[in-house]
């Protein structure tokens, strides 16, 4: 019996890393293949953003900054799309820009998935505008806090900024009713709080990758009015949106759909930690006995 136990410990200790890789791949592939979907409930930190967008009167200006790239699209894109859908549905003015060079292609995806699909009646330059990317990281935020048109002389297509109706009464970031940074690192939500929210007294909300989310909690709620953290944060915003506006059920459940594999993979990781610890303690006990 003792021999058998020892064997199991040895086997557990010597598991090839490729078997672990295979198990984690299966944990993601199988729920995706079988469309495993769970219902999602929103948390107060996400509801705070939803409620803020709800409370803004029509015509208010909302800026979304696309500060992420392809590496974090599964987490960030659903957030951006859910928020944009909400903003446009509430007849708010949507301004889109990017502090990351990889932001503009993601804006294009949003335009295709949200504006051209659900809001074809919205007019470019009147209801929404794509300002594009400018270099400078936090320097850009600092510059447009003082003078937005000094940096954004044109929109993304090279058309003079003065030609757009919705840009006429915008001088700098303080004209925005809400800034939402969808980010995945530097520069991101932290820089928007430091360089725009705090000095300009502008409400800032964030949607970030799960890696970054815990780091930003110290800003909440006085400096950061709400935060969507990772895929769960995106799914929570989608859940809040769909619950209030069921017409978006078909188009706004990207993150909710992905929470199935996410949940199973979390369970598998927990199982790895538990089994790893069982093997460790069994080994330690055996060594103590041997020494005794």
């Amino acid at each position: 019996m003792a021999e058998g136990k020892r064997d199991i410990v040895e086997v557990l200790k010597a598991i090839d890393r490729r078997i672990i890789f295979l198990l984690i791949a299966l944990a993601v592939i199988l729920p995706l293949a079988f469309h495993l979907v769970f219902s999602v409930h929103s948390s107060p930190i996400v509801e705070a953003i939803f409620d803020k967008v709800e409370s803004l009167p029509p015509g208010s200006k909302v800026l979304i900054s696309f500060d992420y790239g392809p590496s974090t699209v599964p987490e960030n894109q659903p957030m951006a799309e859910a928020v944009a859908r909400h903003v446009l549905h509430k007849d708010l003015k949507l301004y889109m820009m990017a502090v990351w060079a990889t932001g503009p292609p993601q804006t294009e995806v949003l335009i295709r998935n949200v504006i051209q699909t659900d809001f074809q009646d919205k007019v470019y330059g009147v209801d929404w505008i794509n300002l594009g990317y400018k270099a400078g990281n936090q320097g850009l935020i600092n510059a447009i806090l003082l003078d937005l048109k000094g940096m954004y002389t044109t929109d993304i297509n090279g058309t003079g900024i003065g030609e757009f109706e919705m840009m006429r009464d915008v001088d700098n970031l303080t004209d925005m009713s809400l800034i939402i940074c969808i980010g995945s690192g530097f520069p991101g939500v932290r820089e928007w709080v430091q360089f725009a929210g705090d000095p300009g007294d502008i409400p800032v909300a964030g949607g970030v990758t799960a890696v970054e989310a815990p780091l930003l909690y110290p800003y909440y709620p006085r400096q950061l009015l709400g935060l969507m953290g990772g895929l769960q944060g995106a799914a929570e915003y989608e859940a809040a949106l769909v619950s209030k506006y069921p017409q978006f059920e078909a188009s706004s459940e990207q993150a909710i759909q992905l929470m199935g594999p996410q949940t199973v993979a979390h369970l598998v990781i927990i199982a790895f930690v538990v089994v790893g610890n069982i093997a460790f303690f069994a080994e330690r006990r055996r060594e103590r006995r041997r020494k005794a």
Partner: peptide, 29 residues
């Protein structure tokens, strides 16, 4: 951008899921 940049960057980051799983098994005691 779509064919090379997106696929390479997204896949490189997704590799980390495997290494996190492996580290969870071997290092978290």
């Amino acid at each position: 951008y779509d064919s090379v940049f997106v696929s390479c960057q997204a896949t490189m980051f997704s590799l980390l899921a495997f290494f996190v799983a492996s580290a969870s098994y071997r290092a978290f005691r």
